[in-house]
Design a protein around this nucleic acid. Structure first.
Length: 218
DNA sequence: AGCCAGGACTGAG
DNA sequence: CTCAGTCATGGC
């Protein structure tokens, strides 16, 4: 009971409201085709990579007609690497995309109907190239499952404005956010997108430690 | 020029 | 489990 009270962090809800009021709806995940496979592809390509570079790679795939899991699976390795090169780490990511394509072709139909978020998460995490953040991005934005994503931006936000340890284990920080919010896909979707938007502001960049102005005053 | 970007894997200790 | 090294491109 005592611990349950201590876990309450009213700032998490408060700051969501302020961010949403300030920035408005973000319409995530950015996806030109509206296809789930494009979202999944983007989730892998954006690993430690600027989104502008991911867009170049996604455009290359689209223009080459390599915009389905089948096409990726049978695309020559060398050609695939060439198409996704702008997103960086193209040798490993080409392998990860093929592994993901195989998963998608064999398991997507089942999980589209299943409500078992935990087993989907475990299966995603078993794939080479899929860590917790990528798995949760796919769960939330491709499968509309109610899960909160922890990324570098979220850690920075949590550290500067919520008083949390930036290096805290992934699952621990995820639990804190989820315990303090309504467990709704729309909330988790919007909150993550808003944090990313916030972190594009100059005062949230890596080298700058001064707090942003009015949004986070008590 | 150098730092950073919507991470994950591997091997060492 | 924690940590450094590795992977690669493009913008600022």
């Amino acid at each position: 009971m005592f611990c349950a009270e201590m876990k309450k962090n009213p700032l998490i809800c408060l700051y969501f409201d302020r961010l949403f009021t300030h920035y408005g709806k973000q319409f995530w995940w950015p996806c030109k085709s509206g296809q789930n496979w494009e979202i999944i592809t983007g989730a892998i390509l954006t690993q430690n990579t600027a989104w502008t570079n991911v867009e170049k790679a996604l455009n290359n795939l689209e223009e080459a007609g390599m915009n389905t899991a089948e096409k990726i699976l049978y695309c020559p390795e060398e050609k695939l690497q060439e198409l996704i090169a702008p997103a960086g780490f193209f040798r490993q990511k080409s392998i990860y995309l093929k592994i993901m394509a195989d998963f998608y072709l064999t398991r997507d139909a089942f999980y589209k109907k299943s409500s078992d978020m935990n087993s989907l998460r475990k299966e995603l995490l078993s794939l080479k190239g899929v860590g917790r953040e990528t798995a949760d991005s796919i769960l939330l934005y491709a499968y509309n499952k109610p899960i909160f994503i922890i990324d570098a931006y979220t850690r920075r936000f949590a550290s500067r404005h919520l008083g949390l340890d930036e290096k805290m284990p992934y699952d621990d920080m995820q639990k804190i956010f989820m315990d303090n919010l309504q467990k709704r896909t729309e909330i988790f979707n919007e909150y993550h997108a808003l944090i990313v938007q916030l972190c594009k502001e100059s005062c949230m960049k890596k080298g700058c430690n001064k707090l942003c102005g009015k949004l986070f005053q008590e």
